[in-house]
Write a protein that binds this DNA or RNA. Structure first.
Lengths: 193, 193
DNA sequence: GTGATAGTTCAGTAATTACTGAAAAGTAAG
DNA sequence: CTTACTTTTCAGTAATTACTGAACTATCAC
């Protein structure tokens, strides 16, 4: 993986890491590296610059950028008097996270919810089917709940989200007090059967 | 993908879906299907039963189960008077989510944090490196914050987490009021440059 | 011990996914 | 319309990942 020498060592390390991690996410090495390069770059880059920096073929860069655009992770820019297309990653990391979460949800969660909803319409014939459907109901309910909550958080501005996150422990403590009064157990259950 | 006929139609659909989705997650089709089968099953299954139901080779099932165990998504069980190993998926969907999140964090987030921490140690030489390092700092801070918050939530019992999630909108509203008083903007910024 | 059953490993192969170069399509300027 | 430049597409190929069957190890019953 011979990253261009003119890239600073710092950048090369970061880009290489994103390449390796890329495969653990749904994206491939190439796409991960292109994104990393754009994320670090102080200015938008055009496809040729990317191809040269990362030593990929021009067509590979084209396909990678197409995928990153489909993920809405890069933004197309234009430089006046230059007809090439330039690409940049958004600056705000919260915004990046939001988009990523939204996109993953659309691709990975929604299809499952759809499948589950349709399965829950069916009338189970056997005991096994009844059990299976009950499991699906549990899964559907859990995911729906999670998504509703996520919708709420996603609407927030970065600063508010940060506030909300740092309130986490506070809210927990409030619930603990409430539960102690009502006799419920907030802490993770210990294994005392 | 000829799932065994003796599986109820409902189950077959669910299992097939998990197989297809599996590749979008980091797991492969086989592993996804084995998990789906176990998730729906009212009782733990042994490797042979799995192999027969899904029509995989015995060795494929063995490898799949090994991976699911590495993900801590299935639990090994023993039936008295039977020396075969049986496998089951935990019942509680919140518990499943918790484990999944923990494991993904360990595999996908921690290595990145480590890389970022080490990059932040370096002294940038050029302006570009200085900029790159600042971007990495932003990313590191964001992820750290997210993980701290996640730690908090992960410690909660299922019921408490549900409570916390359904409090989402309430907390948001409180913050909105607070921000209105302090003159800050809680709502997602509209694109008015 | 031997035989029978259960589980694992691994080399070889099948299937899938990633990448390239060449050709095509698109686009602005003259 | 033509030229020069830019991006996209795609068939072929390389690289990676998934899967199988056969051989091997382990464990239990006898």
């Amino acid at each position: 993986m011979p990253l261009n020498d003119q890239l600073p060592a710092l950048n090369r390390e970061f880009i290489a890491h994103f390449g390796e991690m890329g495969s653990r996410w749904g994206i491939n090495r190439t796409v991960g590296q292109i994104y990393a390069l754009l994320f670090l770059s102080p200015k938008p880059l055009c496809a040729d610059e990317i191809a040269e920096s990362l030593e990929f073929s021009r067509s590979n860069v084209s396909m990678g950028l197409k995928e990153l655009q489909a993920w809405r992770l890069v933004r197309l820019r234009h430089v006046p008097g230059d007809r090439r297309e330039y690409f940049g990653a958004p600056d705000d990391v919260w915004e990046i996270f939001r988009v990523l979460a939204e996109e993953r949800r659309r691709r990975e969660v929604e299809p499952t919810l759809t499948m589950l909803r349709s399965a829950l319409q069916e009338t189970p014939a056997t005991d096994d089917e009844r059990h299976a459907q009950e499991r699906m109901r549990q899964m559907h309910e859990f995911i729906s709940r999670l998504m509703t909550w996520f919708d709420e958080v996603q609407k927030l501005s970065p600063e508010t989200a940060v506030q909300l996150m740092s309130m986490g422990s506070m809210v927990t403590r409030v619930l603990e007090v409430k539960d102690r009064l009502t006799g419920r157990n907030t802490k993770k259950q210990s294994s005392t059967p």
